[in-house]
Design a protein around this nucleic acid. Structure first.
Lengths: 204, 204, 204, 204
DNA sequence: TATGAATGAGTTTTCATTCAT
DNA sequence: AATGAATGAAAACTCATTCAT
């Protein structure tokens, strides 16, 4: 094959993009380095030139992803012009939109291998993101907006809730059923935090 | 090896038991038919005599499991001597104890392959179990015990909550931290269903 | 390919024979499992059905070989009808003839990878065979036939000498030059053990 | 990385030094050009600029080494101020000290890849060095110091003996056990050459 | 002279499945 | 009903070498 040389960073990201997409489509376990190589149109060795193993590339992808998310979360958390409920909404919504968590519609999420169960992804979510969410929740409690005896658990539940909604939306699409899910999620959030009705009401 | 003949049903169940345990220990993808065969002490061919493929055995396991659970759920749901909150508790608690969902303590659930994402397990939970839970929730609403505009979503959240608690308990063990988790779960359940404090108070 | 089933022992030995020959021809490092598989006319999986790895097969080969040799050595050592010098000769000569050490004539031994440097072969020679040789040497000393202050070292030298002769014979063939080598070896053995001229004189 | 330009000869020798060390540490087959490149801190292409292949570099190393040794050997051989036994000792001892034959202590030599079996090393030893040793041996015979009917073979044995001692010393270290080995070697040398006791007695 | 990204054939290994007995 | 030897395609990875800059 003709040799196509690229800037290392470009190649590296290209490989990560391709891998990410495949992991999402077929799951980590059912994606082989060869799959990635084929789709990226590079030689076997090129993959291993950039990543020492299959494990290494998924770790790199997760890192890249979480770094982006953390940045966003911190930025939102620190922004004084945003009120507490809206902060929560933004942070949780961002969880929905990241490409690495995209799945094709029309397939049941249950049966799909899910990258978010893999390789330290959850761990980093737990140690990095949840504390930030908890922090915002506590702020809301201080402000008298929320009420909860279990801020840790409530924060975890919020993340779970949002992941669940995300999965649901993949299946229902963004139609009426989708809207209803979002409404339900808001109601549940309010319940969870004993927040007054209408606390969460911005566009999703 | 000496040929050991058994009643077909016994052999079949034996294989399923072994497979179930392995799937739980290592995950479906990382368990090979040979692993099952080895631990069950049968020949390669015996496995394929009973199950046409690896896929077939996991489907059989899930079927067996869900059938049992459905039976239990229906029985509880119909039992008039149990009040509504207690019914919910029993049904959700049963979700915790089933062997197929057991995992070793000490490992982060996130990183572990989780059979409950596999092969129609979730689907059947969705189509079979959640409606029953919803039914009980609605009964509670009728009784004036619960309040929710989104019984479907609330039911799904209840299942998620309980799965989450189960995973947490695996990590924390049943000590103080575990107890706290259970308390938190109860508070969250009450919040979710707008039930009065103290509605859920039986032993976990 | 048509499926040819054989008795496991036969297959196992067949694979070992083929591997042995290839290791001798090309050296361990330059022989791939695929080489063995190809020549043995079996499927990839068959090789790994019998041997878990490339390493395992060479260990099995060495074991098989050394076991045979040890048996022979012990039998000779215990045979009271054979006198001491002749025992030494027999044991050392046996070292020459074993198939696993055969190499093609015409190629310089120096440049050939040599299995006898591999994977515990030498170690077992050292711990198993040399003590037996030393024992015979000491017997000779007792009988007043040999004289040496360093029976350990002398025994090691004897083995080295014989290996060297073996390698030489591979290059020279069994012609006049070969005969001369053998004569030289005898003289050196006599020197090494301070044995009277003519002590080693049987056909090689 | 910053481009570091050096005098071609310096670079070349640097690469050879690094490669030599690696070959000794891990063996030729288990050292990759990339290993050399990494340790030498040069680019992939630089290696191939100086050496067309992996094979070429080891040949260069052996050449360099043997040239040095040959020079030394010739110089000693011609030096009239040194007596014959001492000449032999010096030449054989030099064989021990060359860096290319250094190995780490503590590992069985048998199992270690041994560069001296590789790529023409032995051949050149045979055609170049052994004749010189033989020449000294014959001189000793003429002087009435040594006695042997097989000077070729005896010379070869001397080299083998010394290599063996070298390997042993690597394992035993230079303690008492090492000393004993050296003493044994001397006794064996005397035996081999039918030299009077005490012929070889200088520091090792 | 020197760089380092890229290549691709090859190696070692795994594993779901088949089939003759 | 049960056995277990055999299959072969594919997975994961290595590494000597090339080449555009």
């Amino acid at each position: 094959m003709a040799r196509i040389t690229k800037a290392p960073d470009e190649r590296r990201n290209e490989l990560m993009d391709v891998a990410e997409q495949l992991f999402v489509e077929k799951g980590y376990d059912h994606t082989s380095p060869s799959d990635i190589i084929r789709r990226a149109n590079v030689a076997q060795g090129t993959f291993y030139y950039y990543f020492g193993s299959k494990d290494e590339i998924i770790k790199a992808i997760i890192d890249r992803y979480i770094k982006k998310y953390e940045q966003y979360v911190e930025q939102v958390a620190e922004d004084e012009s945003i009120d507490t409920p809206r902060k929560l909404e933004l942070i949780l919504e961002a969880l929905i939109d990241f490409p690495m968590l995209r799945k094709k519609f029309g397939k049941l999420a249950y049966d799909q291998p899910n990258i978010s169960n893999h390789r330290g992804y959850g761990e980093r979510m737990g140690t990095k993101v949840i504390p930030i969410i908890k922090h915002i929740v506590l702020q809301g409690v201080e402000d008298g907006l929320f009420k909860t005896e279990y801020p840790d658990e409530a924060s975890e539940m919020l993340v779970m809730l949002i992941k669940h909604v995300r999965d649901e939306l993949k299946q229902t699409g963004n139609g009426d059923a989708g809207l209803r899910k979002v409404e339900a999620a808001r109601a549940i959030m309010e319940n969870l935090l004993c927040a007054p009705r209408g606390t969460f009401r911005s566009q999703p």
